[in-house]
């Protein structure tokens, strides 16, 4: 019975069906079962499957978006019960994302965010045209593990330095990792400005964050 619901939960994520996922979460709580069990053994395996299928071009970006939506819907139902029971849902880490000041390119940054969320990270997306100070402020407030600054213009790339400086002013480094990306950004640039890493695309950005943000105790598998 439980096994059957868990497998339907996996399916609801793969199908990208938020209402269905929420209903299953509801059903689970009504039967008095443990909420984290549903997340860790029902919904997350669904998300992992979607990630793998995306990697081998069996599923595509709209499918990943829909899966992330379904994931959100399910956790929204389970979250209050998790809190009520005093349980801690392990997130893999918190990442603040934004496109630097003077730059309004955000498609790439959004993609990075989607894959991070799909992989279980909490993402705080500041949008585009974001002042350096706001990156640092948000990182401090959220207790972020990493800050990702995107820049698509050669003229705005220099703002990465400002982000690093703002983070340093608040003594957030080296605890909070700073990663940079966007079409003109290179590994060389990242090294030159003293960032913690660079990635050429969203999949590599996810791998980079996984590498930089070491999972802490109690985290989701």
């Amino acid at each position: 019975m439980e096994e059957e619901i868990l497998s339907r939960m996996r399916r609801s994520i793969v199908d990208g069906a938020p209402q269905h996922a929420a209903a299953l979460a509801q059903e689970w709580l009504q039967s008095g079962s443990e909420p984290l069990h549903a997340i860790n053994d029902g919904f997350i395996p669904g998300m992992r499957h979607v990630g793998e299928q995306f990697g081998c071009r069996a599923l595509y970006l709209p499918d990943v978006m829909a899966a992330a939506e379904a994931m959100k819907a399910a956790t929204a139902v389970l979250e209050p019960e998790i809190q009520r029971r005093g349980l801690k849902r392990g997130v893999r880490g918190t990442v603040v994302l934004g496109t630097v000041q003077g730059d309004i390119h955000e498609i790439g940054k959004n993609l990075v965010g989607t894959l991070l969320i799909a992989a279980g990270f909490r993402v705080i997306d500041l949008g585009c045209n974001v002042a350096a100070e706001r990156f640092a402020e948000a990182a401090e407030q959220a207790g972020a593990d990493a800050v990702g600054a995107s820049s698509l213009l050669t003229t705005t790339m220099v703002r990465h330095r400002d982000v690093i400086a703002a983070m340093e002013r608040r003594n957030l480094r080296p605890r909070v990792k700073i990663i940079v990306g966007g079409a003109p950004v290179t590994g060389k640039w990242s090294a030159e400005i003293g960032a913690d890493g660079y990635a050429a695309d969203a999949q590599r950005a996810l791998d980079l964050v996984k590498r930089l943000v070491a999972p802490s105790a109690g985290d989701a598998p």
Binding site: F54, R57, Y60, L61, I107, D201, A202
Partner: peptide, 12 residues
């Protein structure tokens, strides 16, 4: 003028 495009659904 224009530079319209599709989004590649795999690589973005």
């Amino acid at each position: 003028g224009g530079a319209p495009s599709i989004l590649d659904m795999s690589t973005g």
